[in-house]
C-alpha cells in the first residue's frame, strides 16, 4: 500500500495534525515504507487465530462505587492554557 499525498493529508486531518505542505512528501515516503514493513505480516496465515488485545489473560477488576476524589480545580487549572470562571476556554464551538 502506498500512502500518497492526498491520503497523508486525510490522515493528518483525522489525527488533527498540521503538516506543512513541503513536509507531505517526506511523510508520504516514510509512511509508505513503514506500511510495507508492516505488510510482511501477510506472510503468515491467521485465519483461525483469535486476536490478542492484551498480554494477560485476565478480567476487569471492579471498584466500589465510592467518591474518593476531592475538588482540585485550582491545582489542575494551574497548568491549563486558558481558563475563566473555572471553565476551560476554546475558540467558539458552533453546533
Amino acid at each position: 500500500m502506498t500512502l500518497d499525498a492526498e491520503t497523508v493529508k486525510k490522515i493528518a486531518r483525522l489525527a488533527r495534525l498540521k503538516i506543512d505542505d513541503q513536509a507531505i512528501a517526506g511523510y508520504s515516503k516514510n509512511l509508505t515504507n513503514i506500511l510495507q514493513l508492516v505488510e510482511q505480516m501477510n506472510a503468515v496465515s491467521t485465519d483461525q487465530v483469535e486476536p490478542m488485545a492484551h498480554p494477560l489473560d485476565a478480567s476487569q477488576r471492579l471498584r466500589e462505587d465510592r467518591v474518593t476524589e476531592v475538588n482540585q480545580r485550582e491545582q489542575f487549572q494551574s497548568v491549563a492554557p486558558q481558563v475563566q470562571d473555572g471553565l476551560y476556554l476554546v475558540p467558539k464551538v458552533i453546533e
Binding site: A12, L17, K18, I19, Y27, L31, I34, L35
Partner: peptide, 18 residues
Amino acid sequence: RGEGFGAEVKRRIMIGTY
C-alpha cells in the same frame, strides 16, 4: 498538535490512525 509533537511522534500517530 502539529507544533507540539515532533516528526517521529507524528509519523506514529498517522500510521496508527491509518
